[in-house]
Computed example of a mutant assay.
Amino acid sequence: MSERTGVITFQGNPLTLVGPEIKVGDTAPDFAVAANDLSPATLADYAGKVLIIAAVPSLDTPVCDMETRRFNTEAASLGDNVKILTVSMDLPFAQARWCGAAGIEAVQTLSDHAGASFGENWGTLIKELRLLTRAVFVVGKDGKIEYVEYLKEITEEPDYDAALGAVKKLIG
């Protein structure tokens, strides 16, 4: 498995990402994660949809909380052909509890805890912490990557406007 050292930081300290760097034009890699009810979820489950996939370290942190709430709010203006997924290493039970408390209904949270499949395949697994780095991907209906942002500093918020702009170009 490839490693990329020093491409991200946590509070200024360099960390190592495991997995490939995903780029615009790539075919979206598959993943095997768990939904909040412990059912399996893979990329194929979302075929034919435009996807915003946000990788976050933990929903129980302020920036991840803000980011997921923001995407939940934005979902209303995107329509039924767009699905927003937030993937973290949080346990499915913790994700379900957090979603209930935060009133999150439009974003689907997925847990990569069991196998780190998403993290390894999408190049977001932080080797030193076994958490996912903050990253946002937009995947077209054809399964091609249309937008990528790996946050250099994982405590910063993503560029929402750029990600949403990429989605709006795809949905017309």
Rank of each mutant, 00 (worst) to 15 (best):
V7S: 05
P20T: 12
S77L: 07
L17T: 04
E128S: 11
P57H: 00
I104Y: 03
E120D: 09
P92M: 05
E149G: 12
D65L: 02
A114N: 14
R69C: 00
L59I: 02
Y147E: 03
E128W: 09
Y147N: 13
L59S: 12
Q11I: 01
T124G: 14
P92K: 01
L43M: 05
A114E: 03
K23L: 09
S88I: 05
I53Y: 06
C64N: 13
A101Q: 00
F118W: 15
L85Y: 03
L129F: 04
A101D: 13
C64I: 06
A54G: 06
V63C: 03
V82C: 07
A28G: 10
Y46K: 08
T16E: 07
T124D: 06
H113N: 13
A34C: 05
A47E: 14
K144M: 13
N72G: 12
G140K: 12
V82Y: 10
T124M: 04
A76Y: 00
A106R: 10
G119E: 07
A76C: 11
G79F: 11
T86A: 11
K127W: 09
L132F: 04
N36R: 15
G25R: 04
Y46M: 08
A106D: 05
N121I: 08
L43I: 11
T5M: 06
K49D: 12
G123M: 03
A35T: 14
